[in-house]
């Protein structure tokens, strides 16, 4: 059992939890994820690691209520326990293998969408600690769905905000803001990283390509075991089938077949809707 140390709602649909999982906390690196199971009957739900503290033995996860299982997660309170927490899974971000010398000359622009903002945080923190220059764009539909605003502002060089309805920051999509920052404002970057909904990563990749900017994306595919055993997470990258759980979750955005990835994400939508409905009538 893995105890929840703290819990807070970041927005009506998004919760942040710090969970006691010492083995995961001491091995975790930016870019990796973990899998939780709420109880004996639960699904294995992959979640990106939003922070980790080896000394305290804790990992931080951020969950958005989407289906039956994520609702169950958000219904847990501090003091409750997860039945299972396993990780860290997947490969660490590429920059974890780079030297401080290399990172000092690197200029990163992160594009974070919705709940995908949370896993951006440890990456920015790591990069800043190793001397890189880091700007961040956070995008959301409306101002009340923005998360990690203050945390991010505290660790990055420049924070840009955009909302679809203009309720805060730039009015429009992250892609338009990225283009503006680079083309109009003349900012120069050596690497972009996009984490968020698949559709947002697809279009951010197209924009980055237009700008001649290399881009890394973090794929949130379906998974069961998360150790390379089932292949539910298959994605086509550069024409080859790869397993996002062990060879990812981060890939070169230019090479990812996003349309296939989005289609595969919806494989169990019918079953999920049925499950959701069942929960409501219970």
């Amino acid at each position: 059992m893995y105890k929840i140390l703290t819990k807070e709602m970041l927005s009506p649909a998004i919760c942040r939890m710090k969970v006691l999982a010492p083995r995961v906390a001491s091995a975790a690196r930016p870019g990796q994820f973990l899998i939780v199971r709420v109880n004996e009957h639960g699904e294995r739900i992959p979640l990106t690691i939003s922070d980790y503290d080896a000394e305290e033995g804790s990992v931080t996860i951020v969950t958005q209520k989407i289906g039956a299982s994520t609702k169950e997660i958000c219904a847990l309170e501090a003091g409750d326990c997860f039945e299972d927490v396993v990780g860290p899974l997947g490969l660490a971000s590429d920059f974890v293998g780079m030297t401080d010398e290399q990172l000092k000359s690197a200029r990163y622009i992160f594009v974070a969408g919705g709940v995908g903002t949370a896993p951006v945080y440890p990456q920015v923190k790591y990069l800043k600690a190793h001397g890189a220059y880091v700007d961040v764009i956070i995008g959301a539909k409306t101002a009340d769905l923005l998360i990690y605003r203050d945390e991010m502002a505290a660790v990055c060089d420049h924070l840009y905000i955009c909302t679809d309805d203009g309720s805060e920051g730039f009015k429009g999509m992250v892609t338009a803001l990225l283009e503006k920052i680079v083309v109009e404002d003349g900012n120069r970057y050596t690497q972009a990283v996009a984490i968020g909904p698949m559709i947002m990563m697809k279009f951010t990749t197209l924009t980055a390509k237009k700008l001649g900017l290399p881009i890394v994306v973090s794929l949130n595919t379906l998974m069961v075991d998360g150790t390379g055993m089932c292949g539910a997470c298959r994605v086509t990258v550069a024409g080859k089938t790869r397993f996002a759980c062990v060879e990812g979750p981060e890939f070169d955005g230019y090479e990812v077949d996003f349309d296939e990835a989005m289609r595969r994400q919806g494989m169990y939508r019918a079953e999920e809707l049925a499950e959701d409905h069942k929960c409501k009538i219970r």
């Binding site: 699904e43 299982s69 069961v224 089932c230 539910a232």
Partner: peptide
Amino acid sequence: FSANEFLTRNNLMEAYRDDYLTP
């Protein structure tokens, strides 16, 4: 599906039972 995925969903995750959430 790989047989591994299909069987893992059904065996380990007990997807054939109504009271388990895995589809």
